[in-house]
């Protein structure tokens, strides 16, 4: 049996693979089956809308040209595009998106990651990440203002000396005050990260935009 075609094919090839699949994949899938996947539209919250409207005010011409009005629908659209760029540009090979309960990570970044945070369309497949050249981003929203991000993406060392993060001038129409569609989208996506938490941003004062109006 151990040296025959049948043994190798059916026991090792199919059987053991299936066993691992059952125990390592089907079990978690069943455990989370009652947590439905949230569509992107439901992920738009008042915090991310605050940032989105801020983008519209800060870069009125660019925003008008590429996005139109700062509606919730457009916000969802940009979050989706932002995540596609995040994947396509390989940001996730330098940044993780989960806080571990060890190594003082919750002191540095905020609350430890929880399964329910990841049960949405922007985490299919999940962006946990396996390498941190740069910091974790799962609580990044609201940590920096939109124009900080714009300058940072245009040329990271300007705001963060010695930064090895690559420059992304193609997110802009020539200068950091002119983000194009990709620039607006990636900033929206980054500002969304962590916006669902109670403490947002974790360590800075945040004011609801509606209070002023």
């Amino acid at each position: 049996m151990f040296e025959t075609k049948g043994g190798v094919l059916f026991i090792a090839g199919l059987g053991f693979f299936a066993l691992a699949f059952l125990s390592n994949a089907v079990v978690p899938v069943l455990m989370y089956k009652d947590l439905p996947e949230q569509p992107v539209e439901e992920l738009v919250n008042s915090r991310i809308m605050y940032q989105f409207e801020d983008l519209a005010r800060r870069y009125p011409e660019q925003f008008k040209k590429y996005v139109g009005d700062p509606t919730e629908e457009n916000c969802a659209k940009l979050m989706r595009l932002g995540r596609q760029i995040y994947i396509g540009e390989g940001c996730w090979h330098c940044h993780s998106q989960f806080i571990r309960p060890v190594s003082n990570e919750s002191k540095r970044w905020g609350p430890v990651a929880d399964s329910s945070e990841y049960q949405n369309a922007l985490q299919r497949p999940v962006m946990f990440g396996t390498r941190r050249v740069g910091p974790d981003l799962s609580r990044e929203g609201g940590r920096h203002a939109n124009d900080w991000h714009a300058v940072h993406f245009f040329n990271p060392p300007v705001v963060s000396p010695d930064s090895p993060m690559p420059a992304y001038p193609w997110f802009f129409d020539g200068s950091p005050d002119k983000p194009n569609l990709r620039g607006l989208a990636i900033i929206t996506y980054v500002q969304w990260l962590g916006s669902w938490l109670k403490e947002y941003p974790y360590y800075e004062q945040w004011e609801d935009i509606n209070r002023e109006d």
Binding site: V29, M31, S115, Y118, P125, V126
Partner: peptide, 20 residues
């Protein structure tokens, strides 16, 4: 196929780990 089309969040993490 699974982690790209069907699985979200934590369970997709389990399958991606298995894949890698």
């Amino acid at each position: 196929l699974l982690s790209e089309y069907y699985l979200t969040g934590t369970s997709s993490g389990a399958v991606t780990g298995l894949f890698i």
